[in-house]
Design a binder for these strands. Sequence first.
DNA 1: TATTAATACCTTGTATAACCTAGTACTGTA
DNA 2: TACAGTACTAGGTTATACAAGGTATTAATA
Lengths: 109, 109
Amino acid sequence: MNVDNAKSQMRKGMLDYCIMLLLNEKPYYTSDIIQRLKEANLLVVEGTLYPLLTRLKNDGVLSYEWQESTQGPPRKYYVLTDEGREALSQMDAAWNELESTIHMIKLRV
Amino acid sequence: MNVDNAKSQMRKGMLDYCIMLLLNEKPYYTSDIIQRLKEANLLVVEGTLYPLLTRLKNDGVLSYEWQESTQGPPRKYYVLTDEGREALSQMDAAWNELESTIHMIKLRV
DNA sequence: TATTAATACCTTGTATAACCTAGTACTGTA
DNA sequence: TACAGTACTAGGTTATACAAGGTATTAATA
């Protein structure tokens, strides 16, 4: 059995949630997000992140603001919209449900 | 944003893990598994489960034994192999890692 | 003995859609 | 001009999960 594949399948669909959790703290731009996720042991590359952020923006859960940078071109800082906060709370519920499912199976309840 | 889709994406890849957890208790046949997962709020249908069990068997993590039934045709009871138990412990680790990743992001550690 | 119902097993084809690879292009700075 | 830091995209790969249909065995009944 290819456990690495199993792991990557497990992570599937978590990225959206993780990014929304991050942006619930404060606005971040792409490199920030990659860095923060890396610190939490979630490796993500640009080619993954940009389309995902665009998708979330088109879904209405994110918006962005341009901000000047002291070293280089301006950056897009993404923020969670009101709709995003609402979606996030539903994602929280979904995550809790998933955790509880696993625990139920583990404990034979 | 379609939260239902997000939920189903989150669940992706969890089925393998859940089934291996179940079979770590004792042998089950297909209808048992569907029933047990249902009790844990994980709805699965036959068309999903059969190919999955076959895949896990071909991967060497499961094997099966035929058992007579008192009411109907014989059943295939699936059991976890030694290799399966080893894979399961790695899946446990992967799950714990995922949980910890989410918690790290939530707690801004 | 034939027929039907119930239970079990299984396969094919498709939707989904996430994710990654491998680039391009623009902007500011040295 | 060269370089580094941004932003972005087209195209391909991959695998899960499901819907829908088919086969085989047993039990019950006419």
